[in-house]
Design a protein around this nucleic acid. Sequence first.
DNA 1: CCCCTTGATGTCAACGCTTTCATTACTATT
DNA 2: AATAGTAATGAAAGCGTTGACATCAAGGGG
Lengths: 341, 341
Amino acid sequence: MRATIRDVAKAAGVSTATVSRVLNKPDMVDPETMERVRAAMERMAYQPSAIARGLSAKRSDTLGLIVPGITDFFFNELYKGIDRASQQNGMKVLLYDSEHSRERALDGFSILGGYQVSGIIFTSKLVTEDYDPILQRVGIPVVLTLTQSEARTPLPSFRIDEVRAMFDVVAYLVTRGHQRIGMIAGRQWDDKTGELRLEGYRKGLRHFGIEYNEELVEYGQYRFDDGYQAMQRLLEKQPNFHMTALCTASDEMALGAIRCLNDNGLHVPEDISVVGFDDLPLARMITPRLTTVAQPFAEIGEAAVSWLVRAVGREPSPSEIGDYLLPHRLVERESVRALGS
Amino acid sequence: MRATIRDVAKAAGVSTATVSRVLNKPDMVDPETMERVRAAMERMAYQPSAIARGLSAKRSDTLGLIVPGITDFFFNELYKGIDRASQQNGMKVLLYDSEHSRERALDGFSILGGYQVSGIIFTSKLVTEDYDPILQRVGIPVVLTLTQSEARTPLPSFRIDEVRAMFDVVAYLVTRGHQRIGMIAGRQWDDKTGELRLEGYRKGLRHFGIEYNEELVEYGQYRFDDGYQAMQRLLEKQPNFHMTALCTASDEMALGAIRCLNDNGLHVPEDISVVGFDDLPLARMITPRLTTVAQPFAEIGEAAVSWLVRAVGREPSPSEIGDYLLPHRLVERESVRALGS
DNA sequence: CCCCTTGATGTCAACGCTTTCATTACTATT
DNA sequence: AATAGTAATGAAAGCGTTGACATCAAGGGG
């Protein structure tokens, strides 16, 4: 049986209150007593029960993280930031995978609530009005990362300016002499990101006086296979291939597209330029190294945690609840070719 | 304020014990009462406090997972298996990242212990004798995945037969006409896997009467950059390049090696064949698709959880504490070329 | 008609901690 | 010397559950 606070107290000849104090309010206890207690703890390998503490103090020093899928490639980087920041604030993270299901996502709030988490980070899926009841109910701060909210309950969100980012991609491509620019956009029932990025693409074209052409656009749900299939459709739609560059809504889809191109005897960037989105670690590992938009995942995670930590225990002012757009960055690598003049 | 069990009890006109029973031993309560209680819960959006339950029942229905690094590419697949199996057994998973530090790994046991986890899954790092004190102390079952133990405390481990796996790779290569086979092996202070895979490689060579040649072997710590650099050293060691095939101790290093080869104007598999290890999701995404050894990560995770669930609350018999070797599989793709005769 | 089961429910003491409030022994202030 | 602070500690009441035990009504066997 593990040692409890009572055992330590007895061993050190003090009350449990004092032991609790050396842990939580060290400056309230006499240095000498402190020493004795510390020694006792050491001796008995005392580890306070986070559970009991949580129950008593009504806070668990734990943050809940809801992600749609653990296997989404961006997860690791995001988590790294969250973990790092949590660590610094003495918090633990409880992970919940909603498996891309809206119901499970909703459940997540309750379940994490049951663990007395001090705050919840919700990731990647669009928050719609049907989240409102839960959101009202949880009673703890919630922040959004890599997504935003359409619900009534105001929620802060940490992400990049998607429209701007994709606009930048188009601009980059145009500057390199491309005119026939296609796109594999994101499409998912519960995700606004796809729309936004597509909007950025259209905006970019418009800005440079290029006509939007449906023929050059296909959709997928961000994963590799979606990218592959979308590329396939693109290839079929235009037998006499004349697209010179392709934007994608995710690195994974970019990879899929490239694979598909390769399978059809086309090469990147010689025959067609491809730009990814995310800057996953693997973007620099493949051949050709992928030119892509870097999302500051780790920073987003850290920012979300900081916000949460600041918000816990008090009503955040309206001015704090807004959209925090972190800077993205276009990372030039090898998958785009400048068209000779 | 969230509704507590007392609120529900009052609303339903029963005692808290009854409410607790409808949750935990439904067959002990009258259907009619049950209905009333259920309704009350529904109405008040009652969510039992996992914390309080944990304290009272002395079990938290939570498993602890210690990984060396969240960004290790195999993590996601392993976690998927763990999460799935946990779900099925009504368990949550608490994640702890040791950041490749031995001290932090040791801490992990205490911290997770503080959360009353019912069991701990320890991953990827070799367990040495200095873990013994903690191991003795935790008092909850611990299982190892993707690694093994050299400590006194007997611990079950779930992994593949590393030696055999690498032997198979060599055999595969030899069958395809390769004789000059190099290797980028794993090396890390606290990892036995590297050794084992190297042993398999040597064993393979020996079996086919090929002499082991240090010139053809380099080491890295499993990550992309390590692979890249190791390849670089290999290239420098033998200016007149005559290696026809390369085994690696991880897919990531294989990727690194391929990148390095590409940067030196060499092509895979035309100029040299490369075999990875792990079968990460990205192995099938790159060009050329990577031939590699598939580790059943998800299955390993599931098996570990099952074992834990079975072991909780009772002393597992010695016969249950052994090495569980799950089947690996060589996945043929495109990165190996059969040498013409 | 009484006693014993049985099933359904209630009572209450934990679980290991934190926190308020009370107590004690000093020290500084008048 | 009396009073008021102040610093260090202790006693005890929760926190929201669970689980052992007690209670009670209804039904069955003698």
